[in-house]
């Protein structure tokens, strides 16, 4: 008998409790509010940065307070993800009611300061939306900022022409008017889903 697993009640009970708790805990992670994107409230720190804008001036996160900010890390030579994302964000903002458009800001942060000059970034973001601003900074400052939002970027070896690919986050981090991290747009999210969540967020933080 001693060679077998015996499960007397005092042991069986905790085991079943453990399983029950594990199952119940999954409920804690489901969203109460019906966001179409990923709710990241409480998972990330509030918005903070000190970077250079397209006119070469230093800009901090506080200066954009009062707006819903959609932060996206990319680079202007990006062949696919960046143009698609900026296009989507710009369309979603355009589809919002006019009063909300004024309070929404697309923040494009270039993680390729080697090639992306403020002028280049300006013509890039202006092409997509008038609600977009472009920022960049020293690689060290960009590393610190991306680390804060649990993301990173890396550079491929350049080819003969000096072109190289940059790996970067494909997601958009959304901060509310107070600067709290609220939502995360995955790359595959549709324009309509982005618009709907932005409107919900704009309405919510107004009341």
């Amino acid at each position: 008998m001693s060679n077998r697993f015996r499960l007397p009640l005092p042991i069986l009970l905790p085991v079943t409790t453990l399983i029950a708790v594990a199952v119940l805990m999954t409920g804690c992670f489901s969203d109460d509010q019906s966001w179409r994107s990923k709710d990241i409230s409480g998972l990330m720190p509030e918005l903070a940065f000190e970077l250079t804008d397209t006119s070469g001036e230093t800009i901090t996160a506080d200066e954009t307070d009062g707006e819903i900010r959609m932060v996206f890390f990319g680079f202007t030579h990006c062949p696919d993800v960046c143009p698609t994302t900026l296009q989507k964000l710009s369309r979603a903002v355009k589809d919002m009611p006019a009063e909300f458009q004024e309070e929404t800001r697309i923040v494009f942060i270039s993680v390729d300061p080697g090639r992306d000059t403020p002028e280049r970034i300006r013509s890039y973001v202006d092409f997509f939306s008038e609600r977009a601003i472009g920022l960049t900074g020293e690689e060290q400052a960009l590393r610190k900022l991306s680390k804060r939002y649990r993301t990173t970027f890396g550079y491929d070896d350049p080819d003969e022409e000096g072109n190289y690919n940059v790996s970067h986050s494909g997601a958009v981090y959304v901060f509310d008017r107070e600067g709290d991290a609220r939502l995360l747009f995955r790359p595959e999210l549709s324009v309509e889903d982005i618009r709907a969540d932005l409107v919900t967020l704009a309405e919510e933080s107004r009341t």
Partner: peptide
């Protein structure tokens, strides 16, 4: 696990 796609990889892979 798309989080690595979302957060960016340490090098392009």
């Amino acid at each position: 696990y798309d989080v690595y796609e979302v957060c960016g990889r340490a090098w392009p892979m």
